[in-house]
Design a binder for these strands. Structure first.
Length: 233
DNA sequence: GCAAAGATTTGCT
DNA sequence: GCAAATCTTTGCC
């Protein structure tokens, strides 16, 4: 299987978002190969996008967003969860696609184990019984193993060590591969981005979330803090 | 130097 | 349906 075309990511981010749906996220190391079909992404476009980490210019955290396309931008959100982005557009222009959900194709058992490992690594005051989390994840349908940005990283064992990794290098342990025939999205739907209630319009309202409406792995309507804050405001 | 908030998920009420 | 967990980054003193 060949890696995803860098020229597609180098062009406009909004076009790239539609074309990357259906492509495969592959983690090719460890006991079992993990493959997931990308079914939901969000576009963060340029330094003037007030919802983007790039809105404050280049910082230590977001530096790779300013680099070449096809590179992984991985950050820690809320101090607990990692999020995976695919950098887009030419060097010097900060843009990326946040991978919000993938549909497990291969290695679902390993994804489940990785989810359990991640859950046990962050016990909280409610989590008095480790077996509870274990059983919860064990009972999840495969389609729900990576249906959220933090869950994608948990299921694929992605962390800050992958920041800056070239996802379009066939030798990378984590990479994006072309969609096999028939894997493209059946119907691409769009909507506003999730969890960016702090951003002013027009960025708040831009329909820059793209997903395959035919996939059962797409994440929920958006349960982020910012979204709730907006709802109660 | 310190305070505040975040591209989320979870478990209990 | 809500609040907590947790830590990096940012913005201001």
């Amino acid at each position: 299987m060949s890696v995803f075309a860098r020229s597609i990511l180098a062009a406009g981010t909004l076009d790239a978002a539609r074309l990357v749906l259906g492509a495969l996220l592959v983690h090719d190391s460890g006991p079992e190969r993990r493959v997931g079909r990308i079914v939901e992404v969000e576009a963060y476009v340029g330094g003037d996008d007030m919802a983007s980490h790039a809105r404050m210019g280049r910082t230590n955290r977001n530096a790779v967003m300013f680099g070449p396309p096809g590179v992984a931008y991985v950050y820690l959100v809320y101090g607990m969860y990692y999020c995976l982005n695919i950098v887009t557009e030419a060097s010097g222009r900060p843009a990326a696609l946040l991978v919000r959900a993938v549909e497990p194709i291969e290695g679902a058992a390993e994804m489940r184990l990785a989810r359990i490992r991640a859950a046990l690594a962050r016990p909280n005051r409610h989590n008095s019984d480790p077996d509870r989390a274990r059983k919860h994840i064990a009972g999840l349908p495969a389609l729900r193993l990576a249906s959220g940005p933090g869950l994608v990283c948990a299921a694929f064992s992605i962390d800050r060590s992958h920041d800056g990794l070239d996802l379009l290098d066939g030798n990378s342990e984590l990479r994006i591969e072309e969609a096999p025939p028939g894997y493209g999205p059946i119907a691409v739907a769009t909507g506003p981005r999730v969890g960016i209630g702090y951003a002013p319009d027009p960025w708040l309202s831009h329909a820059w979330r793209f997903y395959d409406s035919g996939s059962g792995a797409v994440s929920g309507p958006g349960l982020g803090v910012a979204t709730r804050r907006k709802a109660t405001a």
